[in-house]
Design a binder for these strands. Structure first.
Length: 109
DNA sequence: TGAATGACTTCGG
DNA sequence: CCCGAAGCCATTC
């Protein structure tokens, strides 16, 4: 388990996502220099269960779709979490996604 | 070693 | 914008 570094980085970026904002796996991967490894970001998120501080619900795919909701408890926890932050979610899709989108390569880098 | 898997992305139609 | 197919790469079996 020496890959914690990669997970840690993903977790750190996820934690830096502002309240009520969302980002995509690819954006995080690109920011970490792991462009093309967007799937690994998802894999890292799977390990985010180790860090409860990681707002995995703020990470969606490039379409703003809550593809990872099935990895949360229940069936709509992810949506509830987002809505609790003021993010409107309909049919597992983030509304106004283009404005709520938070790109780490843009905001951080 | 090799095949299968996945919380994705990009490209062509 | 939607759809199907291909590409990517770490992890698992």
């Amino acid at each position: 388990m020496q890959s914690e570094g990669f997970f840690k980085q993903v977790h750190e970026v996820a934690k830096q996502v502002p309240f009520g904002r969302v980002t995509s796996y690819g954006a995080i991967a690109r920011y970490l220099g792991a462009a093309g490894s967007a799937r690994m970001v998802g894999w890292a998120m799977n390990a985010s269960h180790q860090d409860p501080d990681v707002p995995a619900h703020r990470v969606v795919n490039r379409k703003g779709l809550l593809t990872g909701k099935h990895h949360f408890e229940g069936t709509n926890l992810m949506q509830q979490l987002l809505e609790s932050e003021g993010v409107e979610v309909i049919d597992n899709q983030v509304q106004n996604f283009s404005e709520l989108f938070w790109d780490p390569t843009l905001e951080l880098g």
